[in-house]
Design a protein around this nucleic acid. Structure first.
Lengths: 330, 330
DNA sequence: CATAAATTGTCAAACGTTTATCAATTTTTA
DNA sequence: TAAAAATTGATAAACGTTTGACAATTTATG
């Protein structure tokens, strides 16, 4: 692998000059610049990133930690993040935390050891305190990590309001929220969905109902619980789920129980990924602005990294959008 | 950030000793080892990866280049790769090539500049020659990159045979392949699917038919083309698609045209991701052994990196599995 | 207790850059 | 054409670690 001195020799100049060309400082004539560039090209030279960073330059590496990458919502968000970071000259170290705090912590150490310029976190365990004491720029998606760490999210409260109102407007009045419930506390932005749900029903003089369903259950178990629920609760006529895939399960179970959606049961989900919009356009849902979220995450991280901007209790919130479709038809 | 000399000072030993502890060489008493470990712990010390690698140690970074991460098949494969690499102490630099040769090339340069220990590629453009001349360990998924680069894939020929035979066995005899066709040439492993398709039909004294459908078309255009095809080709009674999502489109269009699947049209897909198995269990498909593929990719890369094993025209092929379901019911 | 073995330390070079300083050379300007 | 400005070079220190050579000290062994 060619190094700086090889380029210098080839171009017939000193290493200092080559470095000046690469880092674009000092005064340089066009002639030598060209000589250096062609030498670099001929040798297929790439400055050794490690050596540069050891010297003090940025590594241009960003750690991206999410609880899952197979979940299409995260997959689409990560893809957008990757794409935008690439355009800004950054590379992504992908950290799939798998809802595993130990793995997440281990990754955190690795990332600092690798001198990443910053970290984007979207995990949901609240066990890890390290984030707060790190002197690295961190931005978070949908999770409160500490006062110094800006949190970006879509407006979960407003989204839940949109969804719930849509159920009410389509004629439902015995409405359930299905998903992981955190009644009372609201530590993370996503917990606001229940609040928006309850608030909207209250405004419509309706009572909120809940079916608690843990995220990490297998699909078959979820289906079983939903089947139990639907058979034992014939009164239910509206369901707001914590995510689109749970909504699909509800519709699948409903169909197998000969419950007509949307005639006898309105269903609305949350997330609104491209995948769902393409392959399940029949599902009404709340579309999170994935591209905007990615942009805001990266913009905020960039402010932290390059302008050393400090944040204090920053909660950056983007609006959600209702996608009206068959599953909430009147 | 604490460095080696800080640890040495804290532990009351020399830097050499600390380094010896970290790298586990030379002779060391339990007492000093413990002193160093506790000092490291108290200072929350992490050896600077850049400095170590500059010295000659592995970076423990692996570049993972795929054409998409939102496609659930790739998402699941990448997730498995990430998980297994993590267990082996490697970090993943995620490169989403987006079917964009320029981006891919640019990533390739970045990866070499970052001194990655190896690269896993799963992209499908054949424009990039650099892979062959790189002195880095590279392994490929489903793509032929050069004689030195081992190619891992599932047995596309056998998978296509399974799928086609299933269509025949379920009573179809006017059978189409829908997807990108490469009639004649077979440069990449996936091209063998058409061969397996044609071969099986031949063995059953049937004629193969094709509907060419480019991968990078939007879903709406795909649907339109499928609708055109189905309305103009009433004779078709069996369809083998290049992937499960195309199969879903076929079923959706068929339903809207009141074509009964599976009564009047048998459909079978390819890939068999967890996502499809969970949310579209009605679709018959060929399940690729994603976990095995990930394991083989990493195992092979490991042999290249750590045992400097050379490969010549290595094609490592894993068997596919038929998942029989409703869409090919008799 | 003398000797061998084990442990720890000191010192310095190396990895490939960046950058500052100072000097030397070339080019431009009046 | 002399002085000023621009360009280039030589040299060295620094980033944080690894590793080898050798010396000094401590511990174990018979």
């Amino acid at each position: 692998m060619a190094k700086l001195s090889d380029v210098a020799k080839k171009a017939g100049v000193s290493v200092t000059t080559v470095s000046r060309v690469i880092n674009n400082y000092g005064s340089l004539s066009e002639k030598t610049k060209n000589a250096v560039f062609t030498a670099m090209h001929e040798l297929n030279y790439q400055p050794n990133s490690l050596a540069r960073s050891l010297q003090g330059k940025q590594t241009k590496l960003v750690g991206v930690i999410f609880p899952s990458i197979t979940n299409p919502f995260y997959a689409e968000l990560i893809a957008d993040i990757e794409d935008k970071l690439f355009k800004n000259g950054y590379k992504v170290i992908l950290c799939n935390a798998n809802e595993n705090a130990e793995k997440e912590l281990s990754y955190l150490r690795m990332l600092t050891a690798n001198q990443v310029d910053g970290i984007i976190v979207g995990t949901h365990s609240n066990e890890i305190k390290e984030y707060q004491t790190m002197d690295l720029p961190v931005v978070s998606f949908d999770r409160t990590l500490g006062t110094k760490i800006p949190t970006i999210s879509s407006d979960n409260f407003q989204g839940a309001q949109l969804a719930t109102q849509e159920l009410v407007d389509s004629g439902a009045n015995n409405i359930y929220f299905i998903g992981k419930t955190h009644l009372g506390s609201a530590k993370n932005p996503t917990d606001l969905r229940e609040k928006g749900f309850a608030k909207t029903l209250e405004q419509n003089s309706l009572k909120p109902h809940y079916l608690d369903l843990d995220n990490d259950l297998s699909n078959n178990i979820k289906k079983m619980k939903i089947r139990d629920f639907l058979t034992n609760t014939p009164t239910v006529d509206g369901i707001f789920t914590s995510d689109d895939f749970t909504a699909l399960l509800v519709m699948e179970v409903a169909q197998s129980l000969k419950i007509d959606v949307p005639k006898n049961l309105k269903v609305i989900g949350f997330d609104g990924t491209q995948l769902i919009q393409s392959f399940h356009p029949e599902l009404s849902t709340i579309a999170q602005p994935i591209q905007d979220i990615a942009e805001l995450l990266i913009g905020t991280l960039d402010e932290r990294i390059n302008q050393h901007k400090e944040f204090e209790n920053a909660k950056l919130v983007l609006p959600n959008r209702l996608i009206k479709s068959n599953s909430t038809q009147k």
